[in-house]
Design a binder for these strands. Sequence first.
DNA 1: CCACGGCCTGATTC
DNA 2: AGAATCAGGCCGT
Length: 283
Amino acid sequence: MHLSIDQPLDLKSSLESGQAFRWRCVDGWHVGIIYGNIVKIRQGSSGLDFSSHPSSEHDMVSNIVDYLRLDDPIDSIYDAIIKDDLMAQVVNTHKGLRILRQEPWECLVSFICSATSSIPRISATLEALANQLGAPLLLQNEVAYDFPNAEVLAGVEESLLRRLGMGFRAKYLYCASRMVVDGQIPINEMRRMLYQDAKDQLMAIPGVGEKIADCTLLFSMDKLQAFPIDRWVKRAVEEWYFDGEIMRIEDIRKWALEYFGDYAGYAQQYLFHSKRLQGKKAT
DNA sequence: CCACGGCCTGATTC
DNA sequence: AGAATCAGGCCGT
């Protein structure tokens, strides 16, 4: 199935810029899961080619539009966040990098896993979780495992989670599962909640602080003003906007929301992506 | 309020 | 080679 795209989109960067951890690349195709469907997708000159299961390709179109946020007013967003020459250049270099609209539960778990870890390890852990506890989905000669829901994860021992490589995050994941199952955290209603209200609720989960809450809000809950600050973004802002001065996270957060406005999250993703590529090349 | 060490563990560095 | 150090934080002191 072909889907024409007439706006900036860089599929590879979007799927591999550290927002989602379970996409793999096979022969130029990205294989992963979108809203319970295994999807094989690639970008050509005029748009996307993909196949899917169990939903038909026809029915998957709207899911793909949702997942890649192709409904965002991307040109207005660029206008809004390009406040200076540096951001103009960063956006231009990585034009088409999108924020994804992931499923809230998997996104929350992913970023609980991310604390003091590395992307390859985060991916391995999440894959292990899904392989062990999720339902397999088949497409052509590929298999991918759906992500286990909160009920399933709440039912496994912390020791299993540790065995799967979660380390000290195992107890956080167990708590999060319980809180979602018990209805304390209305994870699927947070898209309709105010940013700060949803954030306060997420941060009530042990192991979820400002950064992990903001990642979840930005990458799965439509809160485009969320500006997660990890070490890369911290470094990027300090070096590129404050002449290398060491800043407090809280001051960066306030500055970013003020400076970039309602689409600060997009600015964050571009800063993160370019700083990380730069950091990797340097080392 | 701020600063700091500890936490699991695999990969990378010295 | 084997031991430190680091990795997309958070929590308690």
